[in-house]
């Protein structure tokens, strides 16, 4: 007989740093900074932080189709939009450190992970989801490629969005965060 009292579980997760309650909400600052480094602002497509020998999408998918992990860190994130054909349309590789002319903008920062008012409440999704297909959560959160501190502290649930919400307002134009590209046929 298994009697699971769920309020206790999240408290444990808090203590182990897998849930909410710590200053950064349990996600290591290093991971968040790394995320920000690659992006012009929160929501921008990451630049390619490695050399690219061949531009074809098969080459990209070789590592980003399934994802790769090493020593507890995500080395190659699984692409959240595997059906999109033209990777280099949005993702570019820096070839130099130099600047043409400096720029004074600091783009929108990665959002803070807010401590939930009650520990067991499922954390809100603290990042944008446009351009992510449905069920893209496993990209960073589930499986061998997911950093340990990003994995959920609960069981075999596969419909993440049932409990984890984004709740952008209508005015932001993001809707529920799932892009329907391309537009449906008339």
């Amino acid at each position: 007989m298994y009697l699971i009292k769920w309020t206790w579980v999240p408290i444990l997760l808090v203590l182990v740093g897998c849930g909410q309650g710590t200053e950064t909400g349990g996600v290591e600052p290093v991971a968040r900074e790394a995320r920000a480094e690659l992006r012009a602002f929160h929501g921008a497509p990451p630049v390619i932080p490695h050399g690219v020998r061949s531009e074809g999408r098969e080459n990209c998918l070789a590592c980003h189709g399934e994802g790769m992990q090493a020593e507890g860190r995500i080395v190659a994130a699984v692409t959240p939009h595997p059906t999109w054909f033209n990777c280099t349309q949005c993702h570019v590789e820096p070839l130099t450190d130099a600047l043409f002319v400096a720029n004074t903008l600091t783009g929108l920062a990665e959002p803070e992970i807010v401590a939930m008012p009650q520990p067991f409440l499922p954390p809100y999704i603290p990042h944008r989801l446009d351009n992510y297909r449905e069920q893209a959560c496993e990209t960073c959160h589930i499986g061998t490629q997911a950093a340990i501190n990003l994995r959920p502290g609960h069981g075999p649930r596969t419909n993440c969005r049932q409990c984890h919400i984004t709740n952008y307002t209508e005015a932001s134009g993001f809707g529920t965060g799932v892009a329907a590209f391309p537009p449906p046929s008339p």
Binding site: M1, Y2, L3, I4, K5, W6, T7, F120, L121, P122, I142, G143, T144, G155, P156, Q162, C163, I165
Partner: peptide, 21 residues
Amino acid sequence: SAVPVFTNCEDLAEGIGIAPA
């Protein structure tokens, strides 16, 4: 949101249902 806060299951044969990975 819908969050389970208490669950009781007495059928061991089904297992606890944690994914192998």
